[in-house]
Design a protein around this nucleic acid. Sequence first.
RNA 1: GCCCAUGUGGCGGAAUUGGUAGACGCAGCAGACUCAAAAUCUGCCAUUCGCAAGGAUGUGAAGGUUCGAUUCCUUUCGUGGGCACCA
Length: 1007
Amino acid sequence: MEYDFRKIEQEWQLRWKENKVYKVLNDYAKPKYYVLDMFPYPSGAGLHVGHPLGYIASDIYSRYKRLKGFNVLHPMGYDSFGLPAEQYALETGQHPAVTTQKNIATFRSQLDKIGFSYDWDREVRTSDPGYYKWTQWIFLLIFDSWYNQITNKAERIDSLQIIFESEGNIHHASPGDKALQFSAGQWASFAESRQQEILMHYRLAFSSYGEVNWCEALGTVLANDEVVNGVSERGGYPVEKKKMRQWYLRITDYADRLLEGLDRIEFSDAMKEMQKNWIGRSQGAEMVFAIKGHAQPLGVYTTRPDTIFGVDFMVVAPEHELVPMITTSGQKEEIEKYLAYVKSRSERERLAEVKQITGCFTGAYAINPFNGREIPVCIAEYVLAGYGTGAIMAVPCGDQRDFLFANHFKIPITNIIGDHFNGEEANPTKEAILQHSGFLNGLLMKDAIEVAVNKIEELRIGKRKINYRMRDAGFSRQRYWGEPFPIVWSDGIAIPLGAEELPVELPHVDKYGPGPNGEGPLANMEDWVHLTPNSSPEEKTMAPEDPGNEIKNPLAGPGSPLFWKGGGEVKRETSTMPGYAGSSWYFLRYMDPGNNELFCDRKASDYWGQVDIYIGGTEHAVGNLLYSRLWTKILFDLGYVGHDEPFKKLVNQGMIQGSSRFVYRLNCKLYFGSDEEIAKDSYPLFIIPKSVADKIDNSTIRRQIEQEIEMYFDANFDNSPLRMVRIEGMSPLHIDVNLVDGVELNVEAYKKKQPNVDFLLLEEDGKYICGVETEKMSKSKYNTVNPNDLVDKYGADTFRMYEMFLGPIEQSKPWDTKGIEGVHRFLRKLWRLFYDDQKGKVWTDHKPTDAELKVLHRTIKKIDEDTERFSFNTAVSTFMICVNDLADLKCHKKEILEPLLFLLSPYAPHISAELCSLLGSGISPVGEDAPGSVYPVFNPALLVESFKEYPVSINGKVRTNINIALDITPADVEQIVLQNDIVQKWLEGKAPKKIIYVKNKMVNVVI
RNA sequence: GCCCAUGUGGCGGAAUUGGUAGACGCAGCAGACUCAAAAUCUGCCAUUCGCAAGGAUGUGAAGGUUCGAUUCCUUUCGUGGGCACCA
């Protein structure tokens, strides 16, 4: 009986599907475990071998935990909104919904072949109205919330209204307009539109005019992480700043909690570091400098108040509001010239010329409050309007940019750090003793920071301040293929739709181009955008004549002013939500996917709780992972979930790189002698070996190739038309890796695909060895490998184990198909422990020996340890060692083999299930007959040894091995070791200085 | 520039707490079985000196701590990733 993996895998997959063995119930009595994969964007290219790496790891872990008795949630879905489908629609006219549907079908069929244990009844798709209804719902919830800095959590907006009614905003400054202040009485006197405008500044999801990354070529706004080096990540088009009405999430209010939460979760240091950098917390002080002759002072932010006496000038951002006010008439012309220059420069240019110092003097002078010194105020590009106050106090001896600026404009530098400053570059040290620094003289800079801040606060010219690099997250996109906002606009007021209006379905469009004024494609849908009475039958409920049908927001509670009373022009919001909207909470929907009342029942989220293991790539380090954490914290504050960090532990899978193969095409010109031109098609493109291609510049090699070509024509034409050959060089060409066996090209197969080529100068055996390079896996490089091909050839079990065998899950590594044979051989060898090709059944019911039990229990222990720590590559090795050992022992005993199958089943479920079923005990490691209690338990007693083969070293070098009983005294050990011939030889009659004996490890004799 | 990873045979990698470096697999070499092939099995396989026994060297490089270092410390080089006028 042979190992017929195709038949076995097909049959078991069908059976598992029919019996719904992976169905997961919210069985609140059982201990839970939540294993999550980052759900994929269903691209048109389908899966390549890199995708399943994480999926296989998570599947193994899920199956393992299930066997250990946990109720394991292990779902899968699709992040199916996004730009690529829309781009494709623009190019081909195919509706994104159609292509997405098709791509998902491809993904699903590929996933199914690998034998994953997903509960597909819990599948989510972010582009499904049944799903994005709740994305919209959560958005409305966030819209209806504000961040209370006193209680330090999000609250519903009505609590803020109550506060305003009783005390104004005295204790809650507006995050959008710091200067705004009003009393309770004033609040009551404001018109409703004014009140709404003020509330908007406080909302956690708010709308505001802001500078966005506008990409003309894509006709859309891009997120910061979609802009790379000033051009769009996709397509590389230029990106510029543009003011536009946008939606934002007030993530900055959560900056500190997002930082603090990192201490409570298991992410890699690299990942935490990336998030910390992104948040960019810095501690310092904000203080004001008076400007000579002006009433309004200049506010600056600094992290180094200790350097206050080293301030030689001030720099403000060119966009700073004070610039036109303080510029003197003498400097006006120059300043305007500089402003024009700044404006003319695109983001791209500015980034390309980092560290180039440009700037201009305003003519104004600021006064240092500590020593009364008058210092010039300049403007410069290197000061950013969006960070801090948009102005700095420049300390050239301590900051390199300030130093360069001072040098450039010949501003004298005050040295406050003595020898630490060499006059050639700034030194940002905190270890210097301060000089020329008034009341700070003699203090270590480190210590002076606190002293200076205290003084600043005492003099009431500033206060300590924490700043963040992170900005509020732009939440609207001028795109089609995303969630529509459940918002309508009336007289400039954003009105949330009621829960009963959800989902606001994405209307079908025929054109995917941008709308007028850079709006999204939805703006072209006149009928959809304008909500006037009777404009569309299904919107009847909005008819203003019917007072019972007001658009009300039930989220805002009774008596809320937030509803549309009819009349006036009402327009829908035409932008859509960004890609991260749907992926910020999908892990919650999996817990309760069918719920029509709520996005996820609190009981379900309390049960499943945090994702215990989240597996995915590093590319979402600051996107998905940060926003998911934000949404969870908001939902936690508002009482919708019971935990505030979504992911307990994150495992980053490495990237599988492609291993590209090249052939080298000869570039040559052929001259023909006869008048009759021979058809171009009748002579081929010539391919030369890499060894020849490398030496193409060598004239001897060229001559050799030319002769080769002449011979070719002599052989293929009766009267060779060739008069002359001139070789111009060669070009490496990517060739399909599937035509290559290792590095050897399958010449026949290649010729079938490329009939018009011929190979020159091959070795005698006719082999062609390809060039090799490691690159990103991509279709255009012909280096993708489709898992389907491998599953067809070797089976899913082999494929799963091979992917794990490649190396540590977190490491990036190039794909190499060659080694898969070894894993396949291992599974066949395992099969032969049960069934022999000739003899048939070989397994028996005989009692196992101690040696056999030892092999089994060593394996149990190692597999447990390795699986727990995600060391799947060593686990596969362990299985191989075990099967090798059992084969050596000629062990075919069911009592040993059956537990082994249970150990193996998370890794290779099909063969394990088949062999278990053939053993006939009526228990299975997969599915409905798999009680947790049959998973093998390690018995340490079986591994106890009484002797050990100790390595004995002389001066740290191993010279021999001696078998010594474990229970004897160190003195006896020394005796035995010293009597050993080899040790004697090395001692040369001398007495050892010292003997180190570590029980169960080694013995070292020091001479 | 700053931060984080990482560097071990021809190749992927192992060595979990400082204790026999190279497990397991690929590739390669030699052999068995076979008419032959496939499949399978057996042996060899870091470098170097040596007929061998047995030495010497060896985890990017240089130092250090230690009886003992792939593992810890310092310096340095290479590779990969992230951030980058953030005051």
